[in-house]
């Protein structure tokens, strides 16, 4: 199969076959990172530019490592050092970057739709590394890869996603990604953090963590953004942790081989207890490893391979 897209903007527009192709590509590229010399020449002469308007360590580094393992040159623009603080518009910044002829532009931006805005205007490819509350497609793809490695399949699995669904681009991408690959998704959290119409994305909705994790093959905990406390979404951290924090006793309700995931960074003791985060069911660090593989696959599919 040929991957014909110019951009990766979201899971919403991907067909299940395209997701399958990305996952297979990622699985085949993963062994490069296990070699003593972790580099292949595939993208030599290509330039990957990452533009981050929000702080990020993991995602930005993951893209950078992915690009370097494929021999692409990388250049990182972060907001503090950029022109945004001087009042330059997003499109002017993007046109200026494009004038330096990058191959794809990897962008993270606090405004939902910002990558779509750029993709419509730029000739180069755009990869969404997280836009506002909207999507974080490479995170969902690495989550799929991690689950598939652990379970050998995606279809028919029971996946519970717990926490602040309303403000989570990871949740929006994950719900759609797992639903498209045939998993059964249940989301849970306090009703203040469960926006209406979640069912239309393909999820079952409950306010009970216990109900969500019964029989689960996968439990995905979301990071609680602590600034939500001041915005009337929650009463106290203590109460949130009591009702929506994942603790060892919850794992007894799930499948015996349940895996525990988290997109990071963790609030230990808030949404996840240290025992669970570090326990045998946790695949949180495999997620990080697979993040590199998935981003290698995306770069390869968008700017390498048949299009080289």
């Amino acid at each position: 199969m040929e991957f014909r897209r110019k951009d990766l903007l979201g899971i919403a527009e991907l067909a299940p076959e395209e997701i399958r192709h990305i996952l297979d590509t990622a699985a085949s590229l993963k062994e490069i990172s296990a070699r003593p010399i972790k580099k292949v020449p595939t993208l030599r002469g290509k330039t990957v530019v990452t533009v981050f308007y929000e702080p990020s360590t993991r995602t930005r580094m993951s893209f950078e490592i992915a690009a370097k393992r494929l021999s692409a040159d990388t250049l990182n623009l972060t907001v503090a050092a950029s022109s945004a603080v001087k009042g330059e518009t997003l499109s002017d910044t993007a046109y200026n970057l494009e004038a330096m002829q990058p191959d794809p532009l990897v962008i993270r931006h606090p405004a939902s739709g910002a990558p779509h805005y750029l993709a419509r205007r730029l000739k180069c490819g755009v990869i969404n590394a997280g836009d506002g509350l909207h999507e974080h497609p490479t995170q969902a793809l690495l989550d799929l890869l991690t689950v598939e490695e652990a379970k050998g399949k995606l279809s028919g699995l029971k996946v519970a996603i717990i926490g602040d669904i309303a403000h989570s681009r990871v949740a929006r991408s994950d719900i759609q990604a797992f639903a498209k690959m045939g998993s059964q998704v249940t989301v849970a959290g306090p009703a203040t953090m469960l926006p209406p119409y979640l069912e239309s994305l393909g999820a079952r909705v409950t306010c009970s963590l216990e109900e969500a994790v019964v029989g689960a093959d996968v439990i995905m905990m979301l990071r609680l953004q602590l600034e939500r406390m001041g915005q009337m979404f929650l009463s106290t951290l203590r109460e949130y942790s009591r009702y929506f924090g994942l603790a060892p006793q919850h794992l007894e309700l799930a499948q015996p081989d349940v895996i525990i995931m988290h997109p990071g960074p963790l609030n230990r003791g808030v949404e996840i207890s240290p025992e669970v985060a570090d326990g045998v069911h946790s695949v949180i660090l495999e997620q990080v490893t697979n993040g590199v593989a998935v981003r290698m696959a995306m770069l390869y599919l968008l700017i390498g391979g048949e299009k080289a």
Binding site: A12, G113, G132, L133, R172, P195, Y197, L198, S200, L201
Partner: peptide
Amino acid sequence: HEGRVSLELGLRG
């Protein structure tokens, strides 16, 4: 508007 489309687009409603 807060509804199905705002949820899909990740825009506050």
